[in-house]
């Protein structure tokens, strides 16, 4: 994915430290940075324009036109669940971004598998007879997608595999699960609200899993799916339920008691993750 010069600099930097790379930041005319845990470390080399173009070409698989929609949204999803934030010069029309050109910054997020990350949530859901919808919340980059990915494995595999529909708008949830024998349907690239609606109407799932509910349309689709008897596991941005509730569409869902289980992910100063699980037992949401 990286040109040889940048790759060597990154490897050299990582070798001097312990821990895993979470992110790699390429910025034209600026130093290459890697993020390890909570720390951003400079690799000591300045990225050239041709190197930025090389990375973008590799991320797009040599076919940038297939990523036009996601580039307008500021990201590219590459093979292996790699998601890269991309920014440059926006070409706008009527106030909307028509295209992004002259890309100068790329932030590559390295997907992490965390086997067992969803075990606690799965056990809680199981102990309550899988009657609840679950809300997973955390700050950006703290592991919501990783947890949801592991939950897909828990729910859709094994002898008691459940029918799971995954609305994978950003091609992240299914990353690394391509070869797993899952009882799951993946709606890749579907807009979230529309994907939930289609999954509800056509795939007869027992569970729908989706990431980053962020609009009223998404919230409406969640509500309609749950009224059909389908269990939803969805994620929201926020470090507490109170901060999640501060968005009006999340507030509506929480106040209507749509979610029975709340899973908050946090990371301590040493980069270790913890999941705080709360269940609503017929009372107001926490």
């Amino acid at each position: 994915m990286l040109p040889v010069r940048l790759a060597k600099a990154a490897v050299k930097t990582v070798a001097l430290r312990t821990g895993r790379i979470n992110e790699i930041r390429i910025r034209t005319g600026r130093p290459l940075f890697v993020t390890m845990g909570n720390e951003s470390v400079s690799c000591g080399v300045i990225c050239r324009p041709d190197e930025t173009a090389y990375v973008l070409d590799k991320l797009c698989g040599g076919s940038m036109y297939t990523h036009g929609d996601t580039l307008r949204e500021g990201f590219v999803s590459a093979a292996g669940g790699i998601r890269a934030g991309v920014c440059g010069r926006a070409v706008t029309r009527d106030g909307k971004i028509d295209a992004v050109t002259d890309v100068t910054s790329i932030m590559i997020r390295i997907p992490q598998r965390a086997s067992g990350a969803a075990d606690g949530l799965f056990e809680l859901m199981s102990s309550r007879g899988f009657r609840d919808n679950a809300l997973v919340y955390s700050l950006p980059g703290t592991g919501k997608t990783t947890l949801l990915r592991e939950l897909i494995l828990c729910l859709a595999s094994g002898d008691a595999a459940r029918r799971v529909a995954v609305v994978d708008t950003r091609f992240e949830l299914g990353a690394g699960l391509e070869d797993e024998p899952l009882n799951a349907d993946f709606l890749l690239g579907y807009p979230r609200g529309k994907g939930i609606e289609i999954a509800t109407r056509t795939m007869s799932p027992q569970f729908i899993i989706c990431d980053e509910i962020a609009s009223a349309e998404d919230a409406r689709a969640v509500e309609e799916a749950t009224s059909s008897g389908i269990r939803i596991v969805a994620s929201f941005h926020g470090d507490t339920v109170a901060s999640v509730r501060s968005s009006p569409f999340a507030e509506r869902l929480i106040d209507k008691n749509v979610f029975g289980i709340f899973a908050g992910i946090s990371r301590d100063g040493d980069g270790r993750y913890s999941v705080e699980l709360t269940a609503r037992d017929g009372s107001a949401a926490p």
Binding site: G62, S63, M64
Partner: peptide, 9 residues
Amino acid sequence: LGKGLRDEE
């Protein structure tokens, strides 16, 4: 080829 968006291609 492959370096531009749909309309450019």
